[in-house]
Nucleic acid binder design. Structure first.
Lengths: 249, 249
DNA sequence: TCAAAATCAATCAAAATCCTTCATTATTTT
DNA sequence: AAAATAATGAAGGATTTTGATTGATTTTGA
């Protein structure tokens, strides 16, 4: 691989995440640990980043609130673990639907090349193209707040496709009220995408459990949940109602 | 193959990708590794790019623009004038189709708010949203090199809409062969968008006249051309065949 | 604090890329 | 048309990059 191409990927990921682990970069670039270490050394010398034990971090003039940092990075780590696990379920040659949103975007760096991705998330596109993944975009109204494509035309556009697997973020998971999200139009798109998939997966950290948002997407049993460690009383609530895959962080 | 033709291909790809591998260029130009290496050496000396182990990368900062600029910056001013004139044709409340591509993107800063825009250019989206313009995106395959949405699904997606006006970039304008562009799939999308519009406008600087590219979009008379100053012999060629609006720069 | 685990730096052989040279093929000039 | 000039592709050895291994260092968790 081209030296600068790898450097760009590293800096790109760092831009999104503030900190990166060596192992992530090894997988992202499919090169060896040694190579990544050498890259980091070079990039540090050029003052593009700061090396830290275990990886590298953004180099910024002012440090942010340490409490904020600690919390969000922990949350972020959980998200990444979940995303990485989700990608592990994908097999070569499959066609995949990726929901718009920050939960799902974490999957992209880990995706294999030989798949077809359909998405309604415009912000995913550059990342997908950078990975040389065949990418299809749903047509329709672009919701300004989230850069997600929704509405009547999005529904019609979706009907053109069928998926092996789809991956969704949601705002609420509840044993009785099912999966929910605040926006009615996004819910409709998610619902249809799920019904067009052989298998549906919900990615959610533990904070989403027992929450209920305005618009209902689907019943709890229509998807497999991928989440991080759960408290045991929550686990019991869902026992037998649907598959839950727990990623231990 | 002509030397300059290869050089242009190289620079073109570099523009899109930031970094290119030798092997990519070998395939793209179907010439040997040696030749590509020689080309890169030449282009580096002219400060069009930077060689790196494995290929070449864009040189960033100030150098890249000004060297190119004898041609490009003059060209850019013309493009802007043309774009501004085109926007002047739009009236409040109209529904507009904007083609993907660098010619059309120049229009966006001048657009009024109270219109509806449909586009197949993903890179236009953030600019449009920033201006609070109601934006619809065509669905379909995302062409990596141009970030344009094309293909069968794009065609189907387009059929949902009707436009008051559409604005297009093209690569060739010829009195006999009409409007042409290098990519067959993009041509199909342009063609349909034009036929869905009450009025169609082609934005083109004078370098596009008398050129012919691979894929035909439409006959010369199906659109109004917006261009900068033309030499009089060219003007005569088109006299009576179609409307030409000339923007004096 | 200490020991186990993880991460790191240094080294070296293998692989990939690069440069030089030369014969061959195109293009231009005469 | 022939000669001169320029561009091309292939082959070899030189150089750079890479990945694996080793032992040193740092972090982690009891």
């Amino acid at each position: 691989m081209l030296e600068t191409e790898r450097h760009e990927k590293i800096l790109q990921l760092l831009k999104e995440k503030n900190t990166v682990k060596i192992q992530e970069l090894v997988e992202l670039t499919s090169s060896s640990e040694s190579t990544i270490r050498r890259d980091l050394t070079v990039l540090e010398k050029k003052e593009y980043l700061k090396r830290v034990h275990g990886g590298a971090s953004k180099l910024q003039g002012k440090l942010q609130e340490p409490t904020m940092n600690e919390k969000s990075s922990k949350n972020h780590q959980a998200k990444q673990k979940i995303a990485q696990f989700a990608v592990g379920l994908i097999e070569e040659g499959e066609s995949i639907y990726l929901d718009a949103g920050s939960t799902i975007v974490e999957m992209i760096p880990f995706l294999p090349e030989n798949i077809v991705v359909v998405t309604n998330g415009i912000t995913h596109i550059p990342l997908l193209l950078e990975k040389n993944i065949k990418t299809y975009l749903i047509g329709g109204f672009v919701k300004p707040s989230t850069n997600a494509v929704v509405g009547r035309d999005a529904i019609a556009s979706l009907e053109h496709y069928r998926f092996d697997k789809c991956f969704m973020g949601v705002n609420g998971i509840h044993p009785q009220y099912g999966y929910t999200t605040p926006d009615q139009e996004e819910a409709a798109v998610k619902q249809l995408a799920m019904s067009l998939s052989r298998e549906a997966f919900i990615l959610a950290d533990d904070s989403k459990f027992s929450e209920v948002a305005f618009a209902r997407i689907a019943d709890i049993k229509t998807a497999t949940i991928i989440t991080n460690d759960l408290e045991s009383d929550i686990k019991n609530q869902y026992a037998g109602k649907t598959d839950i895959k727990v990623v231990t962080a």
